[in-house]
Amino acid sequence: MSKLHVTTSVNGQPEEVLCEPHQSLLDVLRDELGLTGTKEGCSTGDCGACSVTLDGRLVCSCLVLAAEAEGKEVGTIEGVANPDGLHVLQQKFLEHAALQCGICTPGFIVAAKVLLERDPNPDETTIRYWLAGNLCRCTGYDKIIRAVQDAATELAHEA
C-alpha cells in the first residue's frame, strides 16, 4: 500500500508527512513528528490523553486519521506555551498541584484551553462537563477544576 502525502500545519508550523492510510493523527504526531507530549491512554477515544485541536476544535487524535489533517491546523500541547513563558493554564496547574503523575495533564490543558477560548467564564458544572472526556486517575479532579477556575479569573483580569 503506498503512503499518503499529507500537508498540514502543527502549532503554526507547516509540516509535510508521509503516512499510511490507516495511521491515526496521534501516531503521526508521536512517531513521525516526534511530538510525544500528546499521550496514548486507550486509542478508543475514551480517555482524552491524546486531546489536540483540529482547526480550533477539540478532538481525540487517536480517532482522527492523519490524512484528515490535510490542509488543517493542528494544535498540540507543545504549542500551548509561548516564547514569553507558560500559558496561564499551565501555570495554574502547577500552582494548584493539579497533576500527580502527569500523564493526563497535556490532554487536560489542551481541552481546558479550548473551553476558555469559547467560554471565558465557565461555572464549575460547565468545566466538569467540558472535561468529562479527559480521565485523571490520580487527583479526583478537585485541583484540576480549581486550576481551570483560577486560570479563567486571571485571564479575565488580563483582558
Binding site: E78, A81, L86, Q90, L94, T105, P106
Partner: peptide
C-alpha cells in the same frame, strides 16, 4: 518536574 509535565 512540573514544567516538563505541563508542556508535554
Amino acid at each position: 518536574d512540573g514544567v516538563e509535565k505541563v508542556t508535554g
